[in-house]
């Protein structure tokens, strides 16, 4: 019985992941960083990392989940939670519908339970295709519900961050999500549970200034842009060119804000190892 449901869940995730497969190109893919052309199949085989320069292509949320979770373990949480329009902002509803049609997502975050290396956990993934992964009240609510679900069931929590910052159309309520998610993490942490945040390209604005920076362990994908203010704003403020590599994952590691920069090919194994290292009483 169990295996039939697991197979069906696995097929569902695989289908969603396939639709998420949005690395540009038909048969050939041009890497936006080094400009080289590669067979799309070769890029896909390397987990959407450029075989030439190691550029990590952004991943859709379901695609990411299919890469991280054990096959058949995926179960989505609060899938149907949709963005509201709290400020009655002109044109926002239409934009939401367009983003939903374009991406097949309901919001800029997908949360789920599953296992990684056989260990049950709660995983949230932000998707930068949906309103730049910006923090709407619904995204804040989904992340908070995932934190609360993990706290209630005493499960470790992994959040993959990718965000352009606040959802402008939700104004101050977008800002309040920073307080809400951070407060939920404080309660989660008091229970002695593990939270790993994984910073992917780009992690900026309100997400950086809340849950992205609050992991017990903070990992980052190579080359990911990570910061509070965006590079354009900083450049305008200080009026000089920013140094090479500024705000990239490696820079944040060097400045003490990231525990480890982990290439995509090692991410699953690393997460699995960290979950194992935090098992209560050291049982394996």
């Amino acid at each position: 019985m169990n295996s039939i449901f697991a197979k069906r869940r696995n097929r569902l995730l695989a289908m969603k992941a396939l639709r998420d497969n949005y690395v540009p190109g038909d048969r050939l893919t041009v890497c936006p960083k080094c400009g080289q052309e590669h067979q799309r199949g070769a890029v896909a085989k390397d987990l959407f990392v450029c075989p030439g320069c190691g550029y990590h292509f952004p991943l859709g949320a379901y695609h990411r989940l299919s890469m991280i979770l054990d096959s058949g373990s995926f179960r989505e949480l609060n899938e149907k939670l949709l963005a509201a329009d709290p400020l009655s902002f002109p044109g926002y509803r239409e934009k939401q519908r367009a983003a939903q049609r374009k991406t097949g997502l309901n919001e800029a975050a997908v949360t789920a339970t599953g296992t990684v290396g056989g260990r049950k956990c709660v995983v949230g993934v932000m998707d930068s295709r949906f309103f730049m992964g910006s923090m709407s009240a619904a995204v804040g609510e989904k992340i908070t519900l995932a934190i609360e679900y993990a706290a209630k069931n005493k499960l470790p929590l992994i959040l993959f961050c990718a965000s352009g910052g606040a959802r402008m159309q939700e104004g101050i309520l977008s800002l309040m999500q920073m307080a809400k998610t951070s407060a939920a993490l404080a309660r989660f942490s008091e229970k002695g549970l593990l939270y790993i945040s994984v910073l992917t390209d780009p992690t900026t604005g309100g997400v950086t200034a809340s849950f992205a920076s609050l992991g017990d362990i903070i990992l980052a994908e190579p080359g990911a842009l990570i910061g509070f203010a965006g590079p354009r704003v900083i450049q305008q403020t200080i009026g000089e060119t920013l140094p090479e590599g500024f705000q990239r994952a490696e820079y944040q590691e060097e400045h003490g804000f990231v525990d480890a920069v982990v290439p995509r090919s090692q991410l699953r194994e690393t997460l699995s190892r960290l979950l194992r290292l935090h098992e209560k009483g050291g049982r394996s």
């Binding site: 992205a212 704003v233 500024f246």
Partner: peptide, 15 residues
């Protein structure tokens, strides 16, 4: 939004 503020973890401090 300055270079040094970022280097010292503006986001982390707020969070």
């Amino acid at each position: 939004p300055g270079l040094e503020a970022e280097a010292r973890g503006q986001g982390e401090a707020i969070a």
